[in-house]
Each structure stands twice: as C-alpha cells, then as structure tokens.
Design a protein around this nucleic acid. Structure first.
Length: 548
RNA sequence: GCGGGUGUAGCUCAAUGGUAGAGCAAUAGCCUUCCAAGCUAAAGACGAGGGUUCGAUUCCCUUCACCCGCUCCA
C-alpha cells in the first residue's frame, strides 16, 4: 500500500507560507509554543477580519428584512449580539455541555485503552480459588455475555466449563462498587486486560476550560469558558425580543471566541483549543422549521462558493440519525477537503443543526433528554431534575395567529479559523511564470477572493527615479482612503510582483515612463498576469467597482 | 493519553565532544524601464531545563513543540 494518506507536503508548504508571510504563528513561540493555540500575524488578522466582516455583512448588516431572499420561506429579520465568554455555570448544565464534556476517565495500563468510568460495569467471578471483579464497557443486553466470555478466557476454560464459574451479586457499575467498598481497582480485570489491577485511578476529564470567579474564589465559584457561543444567544433571546421589535421568524448572530480543552489538537489551526465561531440562532415557528433548516443549509453552502472556495473540494453531508447530537433533529455539515486529510476525507467547516426547542425549553424547565422521540426533563437518582432550569418563560406570543409557542431553532454554526484555513489552502497555488528571459519560473500565489485579500492593491513605480515614485506615492495616498493597499519601490518589479502574489494581493498598479506622458498606469491581475493600461484618474473607481 | 519520528538563521539544508557554514528570503545602499537580474554592506540559529565532561549543538535524562499512527472528539 503505497498510496499517500494525504497531501502532507502541500500542507507543509502552506503552513510554511503562513508563517513566512505573517499569516499565522504559533502562540507563545519564543517559549517553545503552546499546543492548540495560534496567533494571527499582520496578513492573517486582515484575512480573518475580512472573512468575519463578509459573514457579518452577508448575514446581518447587509440583510434586507423587507424581502424574502431566494429560497427563503418568507422575509425575516436578523440581529447582532456580543456576549461574555464566562457565563453562569447553570447555563452549561442545562445546555448539556456539562454532562457531555465532563467525565471521569479511567485508563488501562496494559491495553492502553481509555474508558468512561461510568460506562464500566461488572461483578465478581470465582473459579477454583481465583476471584476477580470482571468488568466490561458493553452495556445493556451485551454486557452479560461479554462478562462470561471475559471470565472464561481469564480462567482458561472451555465453553462447556462456563457453568463452573461462580458469580457473586448482580451487574454493578464499577464506580458504585468502588464507592461502596465492595471491590478495589486492584481486583478489577479491565475490559481489554488479561490480568487484574491494570486500571488507573479515575481522572477528571473536562473538555471545558475551568476558571474561578473572584480573586479569592473557592470551589463554589467554579465557572467555565464557553465551549460555544450559541448559549449566550439563548440567554438573551428574551432581551432581544423585548427590546428590538423583532418578530419570529428572526435570527440572532454572534462572532466570538470559544474554548475547548481538546484531547489532541492537530492539523495546524483546524482543531484548536481557543477558536472563533460565527453562529446564528434562527428562531422560527415549529411547523416551518424544516423549511428554514433547508434554507439555511443551502444558503450557507452558497456563501462559501460566493467567496471562491472550489466547489469540488466542498461537501454537504447530512448526518445519519445515530450521529445526531443530543439536541438535534437534523444536522448537515459543510466540509472541505483539507490537504492534510486523506483523499476522499473532509473536515468540518460549519454545522447547520435543527435544534428544535431543546435549548429554550432546557433553559426554562431544566435539562431535557430525548426519550421515545420526545424531550422530557432529565431526572437524577432522587427523582428530582438533574439540572434545574431558570424557570423563566422563554415562549413567544404570535400576535397574528394569536398562539403562544416555544420557537424552534436552526443553528448555522461556522468556525472562523477553519474557514480561514480552508480559504488559505484553497487559494494556495504553485504555477509557472516566464522570467525576464522567457524561461518558466515557479511562483507561489494565493488566489484569494478580492474581498478576503489582506491587501487589495500594491502601487509600484517601475523604477526608483524619473519622478515615478512621486506619482506612485500620490496614488497610494489617494487609494489608501478607500482600501488597504501598499507602496513598494524596493528591488526589481518582478520581485515585487512575486511578493504581492504570495500575499494574495489581487492587483498591482505600476507607474512607468508612459504614465508621466499620458497619465495612464498598468493594472496587473494576480491570477491572469494580464496587464491593462488604465487612466490614472479612473483607477480608484475601477478597483472599487471590482471589489463590489 | 500511548507508540514511532523530528527539532540548527525567516525558509531549505550542512558540519562538529573544543560555542557553527551555505543557498534563498529579509534590511540598507548602488544599479535597474514590466514578472524573484547584478554589485556592496550589515544583520541573523543549535527549542527549553538538568546531568556526564576540563569543555556539550553533538552523549544521557526530563520537558516543550511539530509530524505520522492509535485513541478521543463536533
């Protein structure tokens, strides 16, 4: 099998360019770096900001609430929001993140496998004086035969000798058995171990970053950095409704940092521990939710294409039923074929989830669980709600239909850093350009969409004399008022073009001898390398038109 | 978290138990009339911390980071 797992060398060259040209640096690099954290350099911050601005403009600021966009069931409103990173701890209990992201894990020294402590169960088995607590990670009906098979193998018995095994007590959760003192981990035979005592003590495993509120805080003041921005929107659902005159259907958008203590940050910025999300929570009438789900899925898909992502490298994938998150009744991912992935594999850029009324109801009533297709209040062993809700009414009264309901939610949730990475990878090209002798010479070029490009233009005097720099500087100062651009007079013009190609600058304006006599400049296109002469007086309007 | 690999200048790579060279890039100057030309000058590195040694970039240990696989994960 010689097939390449992924185009790793291409990815390496992209990472190298990102570093070399100041797009992305590793955090705290002079101290050796920090796994899972990345900084954006001068070009990177511009690229990322342009991306976020494009999203914000396309979703919120530029949204026309008076007309239904193509494909939308009806016209709708959009509002913006910016919430705090640290919120009331109860937010994460009712959202499900506390339970989902917070586990006790136990490792097996022998098999190197890791198990959720609360997923292990077992019972004592004895045979001819040997006694162990046999444990399995299987659940339900699969557990008893798994235990029997395990015990049979451990005692070295033939199938017909299974009856000789003496079992004590019923199937018990390992954590409960240890807590009750009926067994110790030393007597436990792990699910994939061949001898007892290979399991480590359970360790707390928390995907949420934890902090404490207050300078002299104690255990009661534990708080979490948000693992997603969405919950801040639900927290303010009623505030927005009460203050901004929006009516269902409407969406609330937010861009902001989120934090997850990923086990294995990998693949450059793709899986980071600190990352930025661009999220919309769209609130609609339950009966219309399926139509809105399809609308947002298709709308968001087109957004990536409109900014120039290669369609053949994008994939829209509907989740299977058993893959859906605890809250979701339908989810689609927009995925990109990143170069670090094996051919045919895709990495998630954005998830569009139909969340039903899980979130709003959970924050009203307490954390819900799905049971036989319906959401019901999750209860603890004592029969009380596992996580108590706010008790606040988050339902909506529809003045026109005179009905009250809890809106359903469609959530298009995009990763800003992942999008930056995808656009960077997609823009990266190596091609050949004839040099001054006409011989082909390779060049590296970022074919970024002009809206995303950190610099829109570079103004270059062909040579540093004969009054060309003066004309160029004057043009630079005028253009700078309208768009990010730079002036460069260093080195040969070919070298300067190459520098701009690597930075993804779409246009170069060159002032040459002819400019001085007929007041025209050459406009060089980054992708086609075609140069056209444009009157100096028109060039600013021309570039502004191109950017629209 | 486990196993394997890697770590020398911004990048790509050398050499060495006696404190390191080159190419490209970048900086300044000269030159230069359309795709990384040339000349000159100056600048720049042994991931970090211990240990062995008279002396460590080199040997050993630890740690950090990156890559691959496993595991985990939206």
């Amino acid at each position: 099998m010689n097939d390449k797992p992924s185009d790793q060398s291409r990815m390496d060259r992209i990472v190298s360019l990102a570093k070399r040209r100041g797009f992305i640096f590793q955090s705290s690099e002079i101290y050796g770096g920090l796994n899972g954290f990345w900084d954006y350099g001068p070009l990177g911050v511009a690229l990322k900001r342009n991306l976020k601005d494009a999203w914000w403009h396309d979703m919120v600021a530029g949204h026309d609430e008076l007309a239904a966009p193509a494909g939308a069931p009806e016209a709708y409103e959009m509002a913006g929001l910016d919430c705090t990173i640290i919120m009331h701890p109860q937010v994460w209990k009712c959202s499900g993140h506390f339970d989902l992201f917070h586990d006790w894990m136990i490792d097996c020294r022998e098999s190197k496998k890791r198990y959720r402590y609360d997923h292990l169960s077992g019972r004592f088995a004895s045979h001819r004086g040997k006694r162990v607590f046999v444990v399995t990670d299987a659940s339900g009906d699969e557990a008893p035969p798994a235990l029997t098979a395990k015990a049979q193998k451990f005692f070295g018995l033939r199938a017909k000798q299974i009856e000789e095994i003496e079992w004590e007590g019923g199937l018990t959760g390992l954590s409960a058995a240890v807590a009750a003192g009926s067994t110790t981990l030393a007597a436990v035979l792990g699910p994939d171990a061949t001898e007892p005592g290979t399991l480590t003590d359970p360790r707390e495993f928390n995907l949420m970053f934890e902090t404490r509120i207050g300078a002299m805080a104690g255990d009661d003041d534990r708080a979490f950095l948000r693992p997603e921005t969405a919950q801040g929107i639900f927290m303010n659902f009623k505030n927005v409704l009460d203050t901004s005159r929006v009516r269902v259907p409407f969406g609330i958008a937010q861009i902001g940092k989120s934090f997850r203590n990923e086990i294995t940050p990998r693949n450059f910025t793709f899986r980071s521990r600190e990352f930025e999300q661009m999220e919309i929570e769209f609130f609609c009438k339950p009966a219309d939710s399926a139509a809105w789900y399809r609308y947002w899925r298709d709308r968001r898909w087109k957004w990536y294409l409109s900014l120039g992502l290669t369609e053949g490298k994008l994939q829209l994938r509907e989740h299977d039923k058993d893959e859906l998150s605890h809250y979701s009744v339908g989810t689609a991912d927009i995925e990109y074929a990143f170069p670090f992935l094996a051919p045919g594999e895709f990495g998630e850029l954005e998830g569009i989830a139909h969340r039903g009324d899980f979130d709003l109801r959970s924050h009203m009533e307490g954390k819900l669980v799905r049971q036989d297709g319906a959401l019901v209040l999750e209860t603890g062993p004592d029969g009380k709600p596992r996580h108590k809700g706010s008790g606040k009414d988050l339902s909506y009264f529809d003045d026109i239909s005179r009905e009250r309901y809890v809106p359903h939610v469609i959530e298009p949730s995009a990763g800003a850093d992942r999008a930056v990475l995808a656009f960077l990878c997609d823009a990266y090209h190596e091609d050949e350009v004839p040099d001054e002798d006409g011989k082909p010479r390779s060049r590296t070029v970022l074919k970024l969409h002009p809206r995303l490009a950190p610099l829109k233009a570079a103004i270059l005097p062909l040579v540093k004399k004969d009054g060309m720099p003066e004309v160029a500087i004057d043009l630079y100062r005028q253009l700078k008022r309208h768009m990010p651009c730079m002036y460069d007079e260093k080195g040969s013009v070919g070298r300067r073009y190459a520098r701009q190609d690597e930075a993804g600058t779409p246009w170069c304006l060159t002032i040459d001898g002819q400019t001085l006599s007929d007041k025209t400049v050459t406009l060089r296109d980054r992708d086609s390398l075609v140069q056209t002469r444009v009157p100096l007086a028109d060039v600013i309007d021309l570039l502004r038109d191109k950017l629209r």
